Simulated assay, not measured.
Amino acid sequence: MGFNITITSKGQMTIPKDLRDQLNVKAGDKCYAWVRNGELIMVPRNKPLSELAGILGKPPVDAPLSQEGIDEAVMDAAVERYENAIGKSERE
């Protein structure tokens, strides 16, 4: 089922509640988006760290990070891995 979404004069849009519930996103969550074949593709960046365990390999010994920094690095790596999986030509 699709939803109609209106873009505001500031270029913003509101994600309808049913979609937010399906994506398990809330205010302040980050998403990654790109255009593929004229369609907007959006991926929430709210996966629990436990689902991404091991994606980065062994952590460097000399680079201590805060939990927020670790979470951000993991999410960035997940997005990069997803982009590599779908292939660059589909993202353009």
Rank of each mutant, 00 (worst) to 15 (best):
N4V: 13
N4Y: 14
I5Y: 08
I5F: 09
T6I: 11
T6A: 10
T6Y: 09
T6L: 11
T6V: 12
I7L: 15
T8D: 12
T8G: 08
K10W: 09
Q12E: 11
Q12K: 06
T14L: 05
I15Q: 03
I15Y: 02
P16C: 04
P16M: 07
P16L: 07
K17Q: 13
K17A: 10
K17R: 11
D18G: 00
D21T: 08
Q22K: 15
Q22L: 15
L23I: 00
L23F: 02
L23T: 04
L23Q: 07
N24D: 05
V25W: 00
V25L: 08
K26A: 13
G28P: 09
G28F: 10
D29M: 06
K30I: 02
K30S: 11
K30A: 06
K30Q: 13
C31E: 01
C31W: 02
W34C: 10
V35H: 03
V35I: 15
R36D: 15
N37I: 00
N37A: 14
N37P: 00
L40C: 04
L40Y: 06
I41T: 10
I41D: 03
M42W: 02
V43G: 00
V43Y: 05
V43W: 01
P44L: 05
P44Q: 03
P44Y: 05
N46S: 15
P48W: 10
L49H: 04
L49F: 04
L49Y: 02
L49A: 07
S50V: 09
S50F: 01
S50G: 02
E51T: 06
E51M: 09
L52W: 04
L52P: 04
A53I: 11
A53D: 10
A53G: 01
A53W: 03
G54D: 05
G54S: 02
G54I: 04
G54L: 07
I55W: 11
L56E: 14
L56D: 11
L56G: 14
G57C: 07
K58Y: 00
P60Q: 08
P60V: 03
V61L: 15
V61K: 13
D62H: 14
D62A: 14
D62Y: 09
D62G: 15
A63C: 06
L65N: 05
S66L: 07
S66H: 05
S66R: 04
S66T: 15
Q67S: 08
Q67V: 12
Q67L: 06
E68K: 13
G69R: 00
E72W: 01
E72A: 13
A73R: 14
A73E: 14
V74M: 13
V74E: 05
V74T: 12
D76A: 12
D76Y: 02
A77D: 09
A77F: 09
A78W: 12
V79E: 07
V79T: 15
E80H: 03
E80Q: 08
R81P: 00
R81Q: 11
R81K: 12
R81L: 04
E83N: 00
E83F: 03
E83T: 01
E83S: 03
N84Q: 12
N84E: 07
N84R: 10
I86H: 06
I86N: 09
G87Y: 06
G87M: 06
S89K: 14
E90C: 02
R91L: 14
R91Y: 00
E92D: 09
